[in-house]
Write a protein that binds this DNA or RNA. Structure first.
Lengths: 218, 218
DNA sequence: ACCTGAACACCGTTCAAGT
DNA sequence: ACCTGAACACCGTTCAAGT
């Protein structure tokens, strides 16, 4: 049989993480779900930190940055990269937590993304320090764009999700309007009512145009 | 005497968080540090989640966004906001984790920052949805800028910090240069050798110029 | 090679009780 | 109002042992 394997563990962990949050992904929970003893997991992963590395690697490997023989201009390739990150973060609700918690240097596929971003930034004309900063900036701002709260779908039924959004909106709307005038006014979009177009195209434009306008200055 | 108080707990928690990481901030650890029983903390905070809310509120209240009677153009005010966030994240190594973990809607001073950002975005000419996205984007990209690994100083002696940076650099440099050419080449700045000027001025410019160039389009 | 059993040192939290 | 004691249900992890 060989029921247990590293990928089986990772896949179940992502299921739990996406539906119940990364905090619910625990060695013991994983073990009972897989019909096995908690200690069985320690043969496949040295410890929990390495499990999270496995999760991150699995997630990022899914949207593999295209190969080296890509002759398109850096703007297009960088847009692809950012859009890929945003899509990843949208598809997997727990990707944000995973990428925040993991030691990124330990994740091979993450290093590949990093390297790609560095190369593109260099090609755009930035120096080494600036390129380093830009490559971190790309991931972090992709998180900002993808972080719109549309993730309830995996975790709840549509009715439950609507109820949660409603409650959050009411919370914001019942704040003192003299102290937080804009929050009260914009409670609805703030809490999840943003259109796909706004955060997919406007959001990516926001990131890219900053990079482009600084690239033009050198 | 009244040794124990909410602010005393928060201050000790921030000391631990900044020097040993937020994971080290535990109810029980906090209690022994403060010479008290773990359960004593539950009188001051309903649970650990509320403690983290307290941490976030304390952190953000420290750099209070200026009052309403500020007639300067939105660019300047937004630059101040971003610089303040970056400074906060630099001063407190654990601020990043705190802001990532906390339920931001529950933090009063965070709502004030959010409201300010929303107002400035509206003034820049963005619509409601775009303004919501921008206000999230500002915090997240500030994290990207501030996240350069200069934080070891609080946790280690200068010699230890140098040793850690050296080891990380060696790790990057010993990667296969054919797969990660740029990472290997830029290992040194990537791991902490970025100059203050690059991430303080270039980084803030990066964020602002994206917003400005999109604002100009409408 | 792959998994189990028992045990250890840690968590957050509740609930009744003290002053 | 403010804190303690004892207990509960969870963690991750080690170590020796099984097949």
């Amino acid at each position: 049989m060989g029921k247990l394997s590293a990928t089986a563990i990772v896949e179940r962990a992502l299921e739990i993480g996406d539906t119940e949050g990364l905090d619910a992904v625990t060695i013991r929970r994983l073990a009972t779900d897989l019909g096995v003893t908690p200690m069985a997991l320690y043969w496949h992963f040295k410890n929990k930190e390495q499990l999270v590395v496995g999760l991150a690697d699995h997630l990022i490997a899914g949207f593999a940055p295209e190969s080296d023989d890509d002759d398109r201009p850096w703007r297009e390739r960088m847009r692809d990269l950012i859009e890929g990150l945003v899509r990843l973060l949208r598809t997997h609700p727990c990707a944000k937590s995973v990428l925040e918690q993991v030691d990124q240097v330990a994740v091979p596929s993450f290093l590949a993304v990093w390297d790609l971003a560095l190369g593109l930034a260099r090609r755009a004309g930035f120096d080494t320090e600036q390129s380093c900063l830009i490559s971190k900036y790309i991931l972090q701002s992709a998180i900002a764009i993808a972080d719109a709260p549309v993730h309830y779908s995996a975790r709840y039924t549509p009715e439950e999700a609507a109820e949660i959004v409603r409650r959050k909106r009411v919370t914001l709307q019942s704040l003192p309007a003299d102290r937080y005038p804009y929050l009260v006014e914009m409670a609805a979009p703030m809490v999840g009512g943003i259109s796909r177009e706004t955060y997919d195209t406007f959001g990516v434009d926001l990131i890219l145009s900053g990079i482009e306008s600084l690239a033009a200055r050198r």
